[in-house]
Design a protein around this nucleic acid. Structure first.
Lengths: 235, 235
DNA sequence: AATAACTTGCACTGTTATGTGCAAGTTATT
DNA sequence: AATAACTTGCACATAACAGTGCAAGTTATT
């Protein structure tokens, strides 16, 4: 049975178009956050008019986009747990990088723009996690104690955003970006650059997914020789 | 002699109004960078129409505002010279803080917004100085060498901006802000938090102007006891 | 006091964007 | 093939905001 008799089921291509619009919006708004719906519709191969067949207004489209992205990121971050608060922080940073890398500009708008409150709500758990890791790290002495936890946590967040921002204009490989964001995070919480580097290289879980883990290293150069004091990036 | 005979001198109050408009623009645009000229004129106690008696258009007003601010900052930074690149970087950071503190939002717009190219041009010397200090610091081993100088320099800049940004929402005393911006700068270039703290406290020229300098210390707590591991800020 | 320099209000144009109503088309579904 | 579900193009309403012309006011200067 297909539900009742008279009212017909919604067409399947409509849903597809809706997705097209969201995808287009992601692309267009990622290029220019204040782009018009005209531009979005064009990117989707639809007419401006039809946007309103799927979304009540611009804000609703934006909201849906940001919410979806936020949920994706939040869920990816849920799996981040580790006893060591420094590792946890580094993991949060690099996970965030991985999730957001392809939508940097959008993400920045979501966090900095008028939708910020909503985004923050969706991503509240991250903030809480960062905050908790920082507090814990300060308590066990692994993180700097000369700043109140709240401020330090915000600085950690903003630093990560700064890396994202910079990489929007000066692209960075996915892997280099992940490493850089960890390095900067650790720097902000108080580690020297050598300590941060060694710390990252010392924990298998902080290695880039594709790479062979530290213990059974075959390909990857170890922490001595050419890798030491070598650029993370070439550009 | 008052120039020629027929053409009269421009009225002095006109110049005053022009200043009023610039001052108003600084206030209004600092609150909302995309505010209307209506709002600016209102703040200045003038009519929207009269804005066009002084500036050809919105952009010209904006430009003048940003240029003036830029020049002020640039000139303040010209006096920053020091043999030690770390000290120089810290001085640039705290000088910048001092100059920009009261116009944070505007400054952020000037740097991030559409006028960025122009601002960058005006402030080109800063960028060059930062760049030079970083290169020098990497050469003498006092700064991290795992990142190319360009990127590290940008990270230094962006970190300073991040502190500015954070302090817009979560105010910071002038002095605490200056110290924080130095701490973060040193952190980014590779110092551990303790090293950064000791470094700042070790150089008289990095002390806050009002404070008595290190050598003949009378009031200020020295680097042992209560100051160690103590909050820079209370809020 | 004469007068040029300013300011003001109003009306108007132009631009850019959002959002709606509707008739006429197209397409998936039954 | 019938038909409801979508899409489309067009016209239109609305809303901010920028920028201009002009006539009538006000005010500093000479």
């Amino acid at each position: 049975m297909t539900t009742s008799s008279l009212p017909r089921a919604p067409r399947r291509d409509a849903a597809a178009n809706r997705e097209s619009l969201l995808a287009a919006a992601r692309i267009v708004f990622n290029r220019d956050p204040s782009a018009s719906l005209e531009a979005v519709a064009a990117e989707a191969g639809l007419s401006r008019r039809s946007v309103y067949g799927h979304f009540a207004n611009r804000d609703e489209l934006l909201l849906e986009l940001v919410t979806a992205g936020g949920r994706r990121v939040a869920s990816a971050l849920e799996s981040v747990t580790h006893p060591d608060p420094l590792v946890r922080l580094a993991l949060i940073a690099s996970t965030l990088w991985r999730e957001v890398e392809s939508v940097r500009a959008m993400a920045l708008v979501a966090v900095r723009g008028p939708l910020a409150p909503h985004t923050v709500a969706t991503l509240g758990s991250i903030r809480a996690n960062v905050r908790a890791a920082v507090t814990e790290g300060q308590a066990d002495g692994s993180m700097r104690r000369d700043l109140p936890a709240e401020r330090l946590a915000r600085l950690v967040e903003n630093t990560a955003l700064a890396v994202l921002e910079d990489s929007t204009e000066h692209p960075l490989g996915a892997r280099d970006g992940g490493r850089l964001v960890m390095l900067m995070t650790l720097a902000v919480v108080g580690l020297s650059w050598r300590d941060a580097r060694d710390f990252i290289d010392g924990w298998a879980e902080l290695a880039w997914p594709g790479d062979t883990a530290w213990p059974d290293c075959t390909v990857r150069p170890v922490a001595t020789g050419s890798t030491t004091d070598t650029d993370v990036t070439h550009g």
